[in-house]
């Protein structure tokens, strides 16, 4: 494991998001703008160099599936970098609020985004759709913080709130609740899906759970001395599931068991 920090040219040490564009560059989102890494050196983009940055705090990055442009969710606006040119979409362009929390690329190009408690879609035509506030859906509790944009299927997005997975279709205002048999949790933090679109691993306020066939099994819970939320889950190409408990470093989920790595 090699580690790069500010000493190597990163503008700031807290990485909020990562993305790789088709030209091979690795992009790092930080609180002090975006850094482009060529494998040797970092090049910074922030309000000192690029007018589109009203605020340098970056929450999310996504690469456009159609044209390879880079989408950047910041604390004040949605930015797009294409062909060497930065553009910004803000509340004056239909963004429901200044703060863009999360991004997920759409198969048809553009991105799903999470902003001001709503889901929206941005394309090269601008903000093309905004949902109703998620917390006021008739079937849901009033307070539902969006935790993750999980995956796209057709023209629908599956996303995760504190109260569990939801689905919303492009153009329709309200989200529907995704039923999860045999599993309830006080607050969901992150999930992974398999190739068939089924939830297979869940990080919750209570611990970490996996699904085998249709049954959920707790891997680590508060009853076993596990007091950690797991807000980040990631599956690598070999199928290993990586998890990051909030303060306990990094570990792997292997054969239904949690193995700390670092």
């Amino acid at each position: 494991i090699h580690r790069w920090t500010g000493d190597d040219g990163l503008p700031q040490n807290r990485i909020s998001a990562l993305a790789q564009t088709p030209d091979g560059y690795l992009w790092c989102g930080t609180w002090f703008g975006v850094a482009r890494f060529d494998g040797v050196k970092f090049t910074s983009f922030d309000h000192n160099r690029v007018a589109a940055f009203r605020d340098d705090a970056v929450n999310a990055l996504a690469v456009d599936r159609i044209d390879g442009s880079l989408w950047v969710g910041t604390r004040d606006g949605l930015l797009r970098y294409a062909k060497g040119d930065w553009r910004r979409l803000g509340t004056g362009d239909g963004l429901p609020g200044p703060m863009v929390w999360r991004l997920l690329p759409r198969t048809k190009g553009g991105v799903w985004l999470d902003c001001a408690g709503r889901i929206a879609v941005a394309t090269d035509h601008g903000i093309v759709w905004v949902s109703a506030p998620i917390g006021t859906a008739p079937d849901g509790p009033a307070d539902e913080t969006i935790r993750q944009l999980v995956s796209e299927s057709g023209d629908a997005l599956t996303f995760l709130t504190d109260s569990g997975p939801k689905r919303i279709r492009f153009g329709e205002p309200m989200a529907s609740t995704q039923p999860v048999p045999d599993f309830s949790s006080p607050a969901w933090r992150a999930v992974l899906m398999d190739d068939e679109g089924r939830l297979v691993t869940a990080g919750t306020e209570e611990g970490l759970a996996t699904r085998v066939d249709s049954r959920w099994n707790w891997v680590a819970t508060s009853r076993q001395g596990w007091s950690e939320q797991t807000p980040v889950l990631h599956r690598d190409p070999t199928g290993v599931i990586w998890g990051a408990p909030r303060t306990k470093g990094l570990g792997q989920l292997r054969d239904g068991e949690w193995k700390p790595v670092a």
Binding site: R3, W4, T5, L10, N13, R14, I15, S16, A17, L18, A19, Q20, G24, L26, C28, G29, F37, V232, H234, D236, P237, W242, A244, G249, L250
Partner: peptide, 20 residues
Amino acid sequence: LTSALNDREGGLWLGTSDGL
């Protein structure tokens, strides 16, 4: 850990609260 990425060359990149 704040983020993770598989690059096209087979590398796994981890974004953390203290470096890449």
